[in-house]
């Protein structure tokens, strides 16, 4: 069963019109992309800063209106960018655990909000539900009447997860949920999310820049570059057998114990300029295999091997 289906979803940010000139073309933060996530699956989304990860996530939860395309969650089409509608089906766990909790509200007020607003639950039922959720994220109930600043990063992130769970969603988007945490705490949170997934039958979209983490938790991985999907494949094979040169560059760049230090890319290359995007493949400027074809035509996602797709004219 498909939990989340995205078709040709795109977002272009319009730029301000200068006083005397024509409106410049907008910044294409997310170029039309389609993918789907099966119920119970964890889809990892990897990419570097500026690749459109966060824009994609914000569209999926209805915080940002897409410029084009459609989003279908559990068979229902949602295209009105209304967080209230989205909230019951899909929730978000934020990157910075402390900045995602209102400093002037108690934890109880924070967790109660989705129950009160989305489900109009009466007080006794809310109490019962909150203690149930708190129990499953391993937090003590005495924390409920404290304020966010009293918690460590790991605890605050579990509170953030509890809030997402309270809305009883089908899908949770995890936007760099552990990158602000220390490594010893990071594993606690990742393992907890795995347990919760089984307990509540959740589907995850896991956004991160950390390849090792995403490989450890995902079933499939989507690699983004410059607002477009460049490769999709199974988590256990995509970094070992990448088809797109960018995926290979990513995998080669990750620091691994026991691998000698070499720069996989010698020239000091930078990401293409979003205000002045190149024609053809966006990666061509950094790609060792690039030809004239790459600089002229943008490759489309094609099937390469079992469950692997890559957008490349000259795959590896």
């Amino acid at each position: 069963m498909t939990a989340l289906k995205v078709e040709n979803l795109a977002k272009t940010f319009q730029l301000k019109k200068p006083l005397f000139r024509a409106t410049p073309p907008g910044v294409r933060a997310v170029r039309p992309m389609s993918f789907d996530v099966a119920a119970g699956e964890t889809l990892g989304v990897v990419g570097e800063s500026g690749c459109g990860k966060s824009t994609l996530a914000r569209m999926l939860v209805g915080l940002l209106e897409p410029s084009a395309g459609r989003i279908e969650i559990a068979g229902r089409a949602l295209d009105n960018a209304d967080p209230e509608e989205f909230g019951k089906l899909i929730q978000y766990v934020f990157q910075d655990p402390t900045s995602s909790l209102n400093p002037r509200k108690t934890i109880r007020q924070i967790i109660e909000a989705p129950l009160k607003r989305l489900y109009k639950m009466p007080k006794e039922k809310r109490e019962a539900r909150i203690s149930e959720i708190f129990d499953s994220v391993n937090l003590r109930e005495e924390f409920l009447d404290r304020y966010p600043h009293e918690f460590s990063g790991g605890q605050a992130q579990r509170i953030g997860i509890a809030r997402a769970l309270a809305a009883n969603p089908e899908i949770i988007i995890l936007d760099e949920p552990v990158s602000a945490l220390d490594v010893s705490v990071q594993a606690q949170v990742l393992n907890l999310m795995e347990v919760l997934k089984a307990e509540f039958g959740l589907t995850y979209l896991f956004i991160t820049h950390d390849l090792a983490v995403v490989e450890a938790v995902s079933d499939r991985i989507l690699v983004l570059y410059f607002g477009a999907v460049v490769e999709v494949g199974r988590a256990d094979s995509i970094f070992a057998n990448p088809r797109h040169p960018y995926t290979k560059l990513l995998a080669d760049s990750a620091p691994v114990v026991g691998r000698p230090l070499t720069a996989p890319e010698q020239k000091g290359s930078e990401l293409p300029d979003p205000l002045n995007p190149p024609t053809g493949c966006a990666f061509a400027g950094r790609c060792p295999r690039a030809t004239d074809l790459c600089r002229k035509t943008d490759p489309v996602l094609e099937k390469m091997g079992d469950d692997q797709f890559a957008a490349c004219h000259h795959p590896l």
Binding site: R58, V61, G62, L63, P83, E84, F86, G87, Q91, Y92, F94, Q95, D96, S99, S100, L101, N102, I110, A113, P114, R117, L118, G160, R163, A167
Partner: peptide
């Protein structure tokens, strides 16, 4: 982010 979270809380 807590404002976004509040919107998602309905």
């Amino acid at each position: 982010e807590f404002i976004d979270a509040a919107r998602l809380s309905g």
